[in-house]
């Protein structure tokens, strides 16, 4: 029996006459790496906000880590991790302060925070940097730290919103090594990206166009179905007819 940690059915968000998210349905398994792709303005951000318990759906159903998106938003927030390229760590707090802050926000006790952050810093080789401001770290390290912090409270699901934008190719791959490891330990990874080679690393991907999920399957199946050589070709074929092109 498959264990699903994200289940959504006909999830919809309407602003006036505008269907930002238009009846999307999918399930994501425990430990799955699920790629959430879409054209600019397709509704990805709006959908993710609902899944993270930050915005109420207009209609439809969804449960995240077993919690209802209408009635248990706070529970959802406690059981997920979130990281994006735009917002992750506080640049003007130190490495250690960031870890302690997030640990505290997620309600971990001081003893656990101290023990876990010690292990993390030592093994990452960041001990000498523990008291340095995050703003002074190289981008690659910030990113690894941001991911570590996002899963510091051992969430069931981690949402990654374009986590690798602009980073160098080695750091990008190391980031995916971390994603694979996290998934292997049972954390479900829900990830958006503009790098089509990264879409290949997902177990399954969905492609949103104009508020709807236009395709959802494994990369190999999508390529076969659309007679495409690469995921970029898949994306292009699905999204080129898009009517919307908002941000």
């Amino acid at each position: 029996m498959k264990e699903y940690v994200i289940q959504c059915k006909d999830l919809t968000k309407r602003f006036g006459d505008f269907y930002a998210v238009d009846h999307i349905s999918f399930d994501v398994e425990k430990g799955e790496i699920f790629g959430f792709l879409g054209a600019n303005g397709a509704g990805k951000t709006t959908a993710m906000r609902m899944l993270c318990g930050l915005s109420y759906p207009t209609s439809g159903e969804a449960t995240i880590a077993g919690y209802n998106v209408y009635t248990q938003q706070e529970k959802i927030k406690q059981h997920i991790g979130y990281m994006s390229q735009k917002f992750s760590l506080y640049e003007d707090l130190t490495v250690l302060e960031n870890i302690e802050f997030y640990g505290g926000v997620y309600g971990l006790d001081i003893k656990t925070i101290k023990a876990r952050s010690n292990d993390l810093l030592r093994e990452l080789g960041l001990m000498p940097e523990a008291k340095k401001l995050v703003g002074s770290l190289p981008l690659g390290w910030k990113q690894k730290l941001a991911f570590s912090v996002a899963i510091f409270h051992r969430p069931q699901i981690v949402f990654l919103d374009e986590p690798t934008g602009g980073v160098d190719p080695i750091t990008r791959r190391q980031f995916w090594d971390m994603i694979y490891k996290a998934a292997a330990t049972g954390i479900t990874v829900f990830v958006t990206t503009h790098y089509m080679d990264e879409a290949e690393y997902c177990h399954r991907i969905s492609v949103m166009v104009d508020g709807k999920v236009k395709a959802l399957d494994s990369p190999a199946t999508l390529k076969a179905d659309l007679s495409a050589e690469t995921m970029e070709e898949v994306f292009y074929k699905l999204a080129r007819g898009a009517q919307r092109s908002g941000d």
């Binding site: 292990d119 993390l120 030592r122 093994e123 990452l124 080789g125 690659g140 690894k144 991911f147 570590s148 899963i151 160098d168 190719p169 080695i170 750091t171 190391q174 090594d177 971390m178 490891k181 996290a182 330990t185």
Partner: peptide, 23 residues
């Protein structure tokens, strides 16, 4: 990208232990 990776500073790869520590 292969060429870029090759040309980049090779010391940048994380060790297995470091990756293991994060998860």
């Amino acid at each position: 990208e292969d060429c870029f990776i090759r040309l980049m500073n090779e010391g940048k790869w994380l060790s297995e232990e470091q990756i293991h520590a994060i998860i």
